[in-house]
Simulated assay, not measured.
Amino acid sequence: MLKFLKILVSASALAVLSTGALAQDKPRVAFVPQLVGIPYFNAMEEGGNRAAEELGVEFIYSGPVDTNPIDQLQIVQNLIAQGVEAISVSVLDASSIAPVVEQARQQNIHIYTSDSDAPDSGRAVYVAQATDQGLGYTIIDELVSRVDEDAKIGIVSGEATASNLNAWIGFMQERVAERYPNVTLLEPQFAGGTAQRAAQIATDMMASNPDLKGIVAVASTTCPGVAQAIETSNKIGEVVGTGYCSPNTARSYIKSGAFGFSVLWDPAQLGYLTVWAGKQLIDGKGFEAENTVPGFDEPVTYDAETGVLLLGAPAVFTAENVDNFDF
């Protein structure tokens, strides 16, 4: 009997070890956001977790507590040290990531970008929420349609080094120069990652530009600050606010009139696509011009020349449709 129990215990131990080994054998896909603890990246994490469960990978979500490029880079280096097979980054500082990409490549680790790119870094792929041009053009077209074609418009962005935010601003400026020559687009001001700083900048901007007709909040963290500044300055109806923020972030401001609309995409779907892309890289499958991704109604396109895997076109959230969304 004792001998039988020993055999049974040994078999159970082997089963546990085997289960543990199987768990460790799961490929790991990491995502390093620009900042943890905000609704936008929380939604990306949620989508990443769903993808991990459905695709059979382990998902690691780890990012800095403030928008500090040095802290973000340290997290990426720690993940490389752990041998995580695929690491995606919403890049805060495009100029600093290239050496890390090369370091990872030497260890057969895939470094790629999502949400914010570093196109000259050698990254494996960029999982883009929408084209930078589409985002820049859309927000200007929508805003100008709500103000005058000779309006003055301000910009309140996040980190000055964030490549995605700077790219959107660049296309805003391009759109104004090409299509709206009488619009005055003020030089962007940068609030870092705080709504409080964004509110102060927007307040000062309205005070020093009494003819200001619109303000664009370029980072999700700056949207509440800009909207609150318009509300507290009693500028609703005089200044149209907008920004790249989720329906849940923008809803109360759209309904108060501080925001005329917001522009974004579904970050949960972006998180899912990010993990799917990591699994493709680990499996050595790469990407086709059109890719079938679980849970996506339309094929996801890939541009081999730019290395961009595109989620889709920007979405515009207004008073008429904002309650149809929950993220």
Rank of each mutant, 00 (worst) to 15 (best):
T292S: 12
G83P: 07
P69W: 07
R146W: 04
E298K: 11
D150L: 05
T242V: 14
V84R: 03
V16N: 00
T232V: 14
F317V: 06
Q72L: 12
Q280A: 11
G83T: 05
M44D: 04
A202I: 01
V65C: 03
P64Y: 04
R28V: 14
I60F: 07
A315L: 15
Q24G: 05
M206P: 05
T232I: 09
I201C: 05
V57M: 15
P247S: 13
D266V: 03
P69K: 00
E46V: 08
V84Y: 00
Q103Y: 02
D211C: 00
Y302N: 12
G56Y: 11
D326L: 06
S233C: 03
P181W: 13
S246W: 04
F296C: 08
I109P: 08
A319N: 09
A160R: 12
A277S: 15
L14M: 12
V36D: 00
E53S: 14
P69T: 07
S145K: 13
L264I: 13
A229M: 05
Q24W: 12
E53L: 14
A217V: 00
Q74D: 09
T221S: 10
G237Y: 12
F31Y: 13
L273F: 06
G170E: 09
A227G: 03
V176Q: 04
D150S: 13
T203G: 10
P64K: 06
Q196N: 07
T222R: 04
L73I: 09
Q200S: 13
V322S: 03
R28A: 15
S233Y: 00
T292V: 14
Q129S: 14
C223F: 00
